[in-house]
Amino acid sequence: MKIGIFFGGTSREREISFAGGRTVFDNLDKALFQPVPIFVDSLGQFILLDWQFIYKGTIRDFYPPVESQPASVHHLQVYIESLGELSHEERFHAIAKVGREVKAQELPQLMDFAFLALHGPGGEDGAIQGMLEWLGIPYSGSGILPSAFGIDKIAQKNLLHALNRPTPSFRVIKAEEWDTTDHAATLAYLVRELGLPLVLKAPRQGSSIGVSILKTDNLAKFEAAIERSLFRKRVTREEWQRLGEQDKLAWVQHLTDIREGIGLPVVVSGSSSLVSGLNDDQPATSNQQPETIIYHPETLLFALNERLESAEQVLLTNVDGETQVLVESFVAGREFSCIVVEDPNGLP
């Protein structure tokens, strides 16, 4: 029986998924099953991966291959989305170094069953599940509808609330509202309505990505938590100019690391006056600079050096960032996980 192991993926949890796929590959009983490693890259391409690359430490250790990457002064490791818009030929050559591309219609010939080790959007949101059902390939995990509700925390909360199921009290902050309202007043309202600690979440990410717990009535920490859930980062000229060259490089590397920072590509926007002026009684009259999309961390380093010569601050926003933040009251207790296996009739 051929087991297609789907791992990697487009989400910020792709490294966790990559490690999980390797675990499945190693522990599958080879006397009963033939593993078929299907690596999904961050552009959503399916790659039948040569087995030796499964044992690399991280995705960036082997993909995109060095030959596909532009010359870099600092020799930074990147994901393939940092290479910008690639031609069909460039994508083909990158994939050919680590395996071969697999089209969706080929999957039924390659496997009898799909083991989904994918995480987050694209892996747990019903997308891959819908494709596999369309192709007639049975798979592990939840179906389309529960996956779609499970990945969308706000939809899930609204459903639980409508069904009168117990769930922590919550509020939703939209990005456009956040940019035009008084942050201190928003924090005071949330503390009054939900109490402390507050739990802030990125609504459509898996696991603990974009999650913060605010334990005190601290405006600066609250603003940082909101920005983290929106996958945005502000940096002022003063902050940037205090850093040495190596510190600036480390800052950019941390920011663009999908496990800790906001990832790439990012939209860069800046102004000659601080964006926090939007919280004042008077409307902001800042001289906005044009927005730019940046794909590579080294390009971002150079852009920040240039922008922050004239701009008071720069706002960095991931192009796949969130548009809302879910804020919940905190629940203290122990967490349990339970696997539910259904029989062919859908009964546990």
Rank of each mutant, 00 (worst) to 15 (best):
K97H: 13
V98Q: 10
V98D: 10
V98R: 10
G99E: 03
G99S: 11
R100G: 11
R100V: 12
E101A: 14
E101I: 11
E101K: 13
V102D: 04
V102Y: 04
V102C: 08
V102F: 05
K103T: 10
K103P: 06
K103A: 08
K103D: 10
Q105P: 01
E106H: 06
E106T: 12
L107N: 03
L110C: 09
L110T: 05
L110E: 09
M111L: 15
M111V: 15
M111P: 11
D112L: 04
F113Q: 13
F113E: 14
A114D: 03
A114Y: 02
A114S: 04
F115P: 04
F115Y: 12
F115A: 09
F115L: 10
L116D: 10
L116M: 07
L116N: 05
L116W: 04
A117L: 01
A117E: 06
L118M: 08
L118A: 07
H119A: 05
H119M: 06
G120A: 01
G120Y: 00
G120S: 02
P121N: 11
P121D: 11
P121I: 14
P121C: 13
G123H: 03
G123L: 04
G123M: 03
G123V: 04
G123R: 02
E124L: 04
E124F: 05
D125Q: 00
D125A: 00
D125F: 00
G126T: 00
G126D: 04
A127Q: 13
A127M: 15
A127R: 08
I128L: 05
Q129I: 02
Q129M: 04
G130Q: 03
G130D: 00
G130T: 02
M131C: 11
M131H: 12
L132D: 09
L132W: 03
E133D: 11
W134Y: 12
W134K: 10
W134E: 08
L135S: 05
G136A: 02
G136V: 06
G136L: 02
P138G: 15
P138Y: 03
P138L: 05
P138D: 09
P138S: 12
Y139Q: 12
Y139C: 07
Y139K: 05
S140A: 05
S140N: 07
S140P: 03
G141H: 01
G141R: 00
G143F: 02
G143C: 05
I144V: 15
L145K: 01
P146A: 08
P146V: 08
S147Q: 02
S147H: 01
A148M: 04
F149T: 10
F149R: 07
F149V: 13
G150I: 01
G150P: 14
G150C: 06
I151K: 01
I151E: 12
D152F: 08
D152I: 06
K153W: 13
K153Q: 11
K153G: 05
I154N: 07
A155H: 10
K157R: 15
K157S: 12
K157Q: 12
N158I: 07
N158P: 04
L160V: 15
L160W: 15
H161G: 11
H161R: 14
A162Q: 14
A162I: 09
A162L: 14
A162Y: 14
L163P: 07
L163G: 11
N164D: 14
R165T: 14
